[in-house]
């Protein structure tokens, strides 16, 4: 009896643990769809997906509801962040795993953990008072796509460094001694053995962190300028979808409000595509 109750408890918790995330994802999807419904019915999908003009109104026929420029902005700002943070994190990882004295590499890793724990508003504020004025010296006003990329890069850097470092140590434990025994130089070891072995985990880490950048809101909102337009250079102000939701949701009504939810739905779709792309690649690698 005692045993069965215990087992029942364990089984119950396991089932709950499995079901909860599924229910959560489905309910978020359902909630977004319900809230976005008026827009999905009244605003042509082609307008939302392909038009850049965003002049929302309470009624569908009085405004422009194009989300295209903001979707491109979301993708551009995340891609930029990955392009900046990726190589830096890769080099930091190599240095910490193979070159630095243990005390130094531990110090850097602790710093990264600290950075990872900073609330995004704090990083956004750093962006607003440090990065934006600096960029403003080069091209006024400084609130632009590049500022958003830099701020997001700072946010995803710790996750990338830690992921790369852990992966590299894993490879190293198995192969570093063997490599040393056959007389490989450290850089050759990194290039010829670590890099190919870590190709897949690296891509995964970049996708996960890129997805995180895609969803980030507050820090980006503070530094990107929020003008709705297709970016033509790194210096243009842009408005990502998340920033749009945060900026306009408190006062939006009717179709305007529903379109903001439609934007959220779109972002969920993009992230789902990223996850699917990652799975497909896993499968190909596995085959």
């Amino acid at each position: 009896m005692y045993r069965t109750i215990t087992e029942l408890g364990i089984k119950g918790s396991l089932v709950a643990g499995v079901v909860a995330p599924i229910v959560l994802v489905l309910s978020i999807f359902g909630f977004l769809t319900i809230e976005a419904w008026p827009a999905l019915v009244d605003v042509p999908w082609a307008e939302m997906l392909f038009r850049p003009a965003w002049h929302p109104a309470v009624e569908a026929d009085q405004g422009d509801f194009g989300l295209a420029a903001m979707l491109v902005a979301s993708l551009a700002v995340s891609l930029g962040a990955v392009l900046i943070a990726g190589p830096v994190a890769w080099l930091t990882g190599i240095w910490a795993a193979f070159y630095a004295p243990p005390r130094w590499s531990q110090g850097v890793l602790r710093c990264m953990e600290l950075l990872a724990g900073l609330p995004s508003v704090v990083i956004g504020f750093w962006g607003l008072v440090q990065v934006v004025p600096l960029l403003g010296e080069l091209a006024a006003p400084g609130t632009c796509l590049l500022a958003g990329c830099i701020v997001l890069a700072a946010m995803i850097l710790p996750g990338l460094v830690i992921a790369f470092y852990v992966g590299m140590r894993g490879v190293a434990a198995e192969l570093q001694l063997a490599a040393a025994a056959v007389g490989l130089r450290r850089w050759t070891f990194v290039q010829r053995i670590v890099r190919p072995a870590l190709r897949q985990p690296t891509v995964d880490a970049l996708i996960v962190q890129g997805g995180r950048a895609l969803g980030e809101t507050m820090a980006v909102l503070m530094v990107v300028g929020n003008v709705v337009q297709f970016p033509t250079s790194w210096w243009d102000p842009v408005r990502p979808i998340t920033a749009n939701i945060a900026l306009e949701m408190p006062y939006a009504e009717g179709i305007h409000r529903a379109t903001l939810f439609a934007g959220g739905l779109m972002l969920l779709g993009v992230i789902a595509l990223l996850v699917i792309a990652m799975r497909l690649q896993w499968r190909r690698e596995g085959a």
Binding site: H55, V132, A140, P141, T143, G225, N226, V227, V228, L247
Partner: peptide
């Protein structure tokens, strides 16, 4: 809203004040 040629779009008052306060132009 279609007529406005904006360089920065802001949300609340504080953000607007910080933006203008940190930019001479």
């Amino acid at each position: 809203d279609r007529d406005i040629d904006a360089d920065v779009v802001i949300g609340d008052n504080e953000q607007g004040i910080k933006t203008v306060g940190s930019n001479r132009a």
